[in-house]
Design a protein around this nucleic acid. Structure first.
Length: 426
DNA sequence: TCTGGGGTCCTAGGACCC
DNA sequence: TCTGGGGTCCTAGGACCC
């Protein structure tokens, strides 16, 4: 059996941890740039705040109901996420945990006897909540897709289920799938939901009973076939090897306000390149491919129809690198190449691909001594920036004023990752 | 005024090879 | 007059996820 464990309203729970006064109040967390609502507590859902809804459209509702609003604070969430994952690994073993996202992990329960499943899962839940202060829900079933179904039901009825749902018989599977609308299934997005609805399929049980060939034709080939099999309890999506290397690491941002000057665009791209370089160094990768993209105003004919246009340009790097200086030097010309005067840019990004473990970077006999010291320089900069605060040491190319920077007006303190922002008890 | 950021996987089609 | 077939590799783009 497999389980998926999921932190309840994760970002909001992180905020509440340091604001006990909000424990029963509605809370929402906004995306970067304070654009969308990306996490809501049950209380906020009840009031009618939509998921991924633009903040400005919900502002009135939020203010009228006294909802606490936070800008996203990824330092805080990232740190608490690590604590949750470390707890899971400590309880059931490193090799049985697959971190799926910042707030979710799949657990391999194969070594637990069927008749002890509930006990075991309950223990995992209790310990995680006690050690981290974050509430979680758990779904258990024979496949990943079914465990997601179970998890969703456990969250919907926290009181009735105690946050745990186990699908261990065909009858329970059937009941759960009949209760699950097609668009709420893991692997069915907007496009497929429309297609399936047109075909008269509305819940998970109906989908489960469709012929595989139909799904191969209409739901993305092999992806659709796997989905059906998983719904039938035949595992097709296995646990991932934790040692698998990533394929890309990206840093992309909307601008605080539209950018129309080449210089601002270059600064932003240089900044994202150094941010991305930090990320790959921390994860001990080096990149062989660098892609820069820009997004131009996607609002067509004043109708506020969101239709972003992006343009990419990339460079194959002559050798794998994680060096900020080098990556900036490749990234900035790509930004220049993409830039057109008179156009407003809303967003840009740097994607590092073709990742290899950085131990495989070959030292080069023909480099000058100064160049061979670059890794030491990079880690010195990383250490300073990490231990002090962001960007004490930075490249001039990344700009000094940064007037394109995103807005984060309502961010809480980084309680767990910055000494000068520690939680205070008076 | 105002719509996130960071990923994965799969497929179709073009380029190229013999 | 007549112009193959099969294979691989790469890339762009679409669909999905949280």
């Amino acid at each position: 059996m497999k389980a998926i464990i999921d932190c309840n309203s994760f970002y909001c729970s992180c905020e509440r941890l340091f604001r006990p006064d909000l424990s029963l109040k509605p809370v929402v967390v906004l995306s970067n740039n304070d654009g969308c609502i990306i996490s809501r507590t049950d209380e906020a859902k009840k009031i009618g705040v939509g998921m991924a809804a633009p903040y400005y459209q919900n502002r009135e509702l939020i203010e009228k109901n006294g909802v606490a609003v936070f800008s996203s604070n990824y330092n805080l969430y990232g740190d608490l996420s690590m604590r949750v994952m470390d707890t899971l690994k400590a309880v059931i073993g490193v090799h049985s945990v697959e971190i799926y996202s910042v707030d979710e992990a799949f657990l391999d329960l194969n070594r637990i006897p069927e008749n002890k499943l509930y006990e075991a899962v309950k223990e995992i839940k209790d310990i995680t909540e006690q050690w981290t202060g974050i509430k979680v829900s758990i779904g258990v079933a024979s496949t990943k897709v079914l465990s997601k179904v179970a998890n969703r039901l456990s969250k919907k009825d926290k009181k009735g289920t105690n946050g745990i749902v186990i699908l261990d018989t065909i009858e329970k599977e059937r009941e759960a799938l009949e209760k699950t609308q097609i668009q709420d299934l893991w692997g069915v997005g907007r496009q497929y939901a429309v297609k399936l609805n047109n075909f008269g399929i509305e819940n998970g049980w109906q989908l489960r009973n469709l012929p595989e060939e139909w799904c191969r034709k209409n739901l993305g080939g092999i992806v659709g076939v796997r989905l059906i099999k998983e719904l039938k309890g035949v595992p097709c999506i296995s646990m991932k090897d934790p040692l698998e290397t990533k394929k890309m690491i990206a840093t992309t941002r909307m601008f605080g306000r539209p950018v129309h000057k080449l210089n601002d665009l270059k600064e932003a791209v240089a900044t994202y390149a150094s941010r991305a370089a930090e990320k790959i160094r921390r994860q001990q990768y080096a990149a062989t491919l660098l892609d820069v993209f820009v997004m131009t105003n996607g609002f067509v004919n004043q109708k506020s129809e969101y239709n972003p246009q992006t343009k990419h340009a990339h460079t194959v790097l002559p050798k794998a690198t994680s060096n900020t200086n080098e990556l900036i030097q490749y990234a900035v010309p790509l930004a220049e190449q993409l830039f057109r005067p008179g156009i407003k840019y809303l967003k840009a990004g740097v994607i590092l691909g073709g990742l290899v473990p950085d131990s495989s970077i070959q030292s080069n006999l023909f480099l000058t001594p100064a160049q061979n010291h670059l890794p030491a320089l990079m880690s010195a900069i990383d250490n300073i920036n990490f231990s002090m605060r962001d960007d004490v040491v930075k490249y001039v190319a990344t700009g000094l004023k940064r007037n394109w920077k995103m807005r984060q007006e309502l961010r809480s303190r980084r309680f767990t990752t910055r000494w000068n922002e520690l939680f205070e008890i008076k």
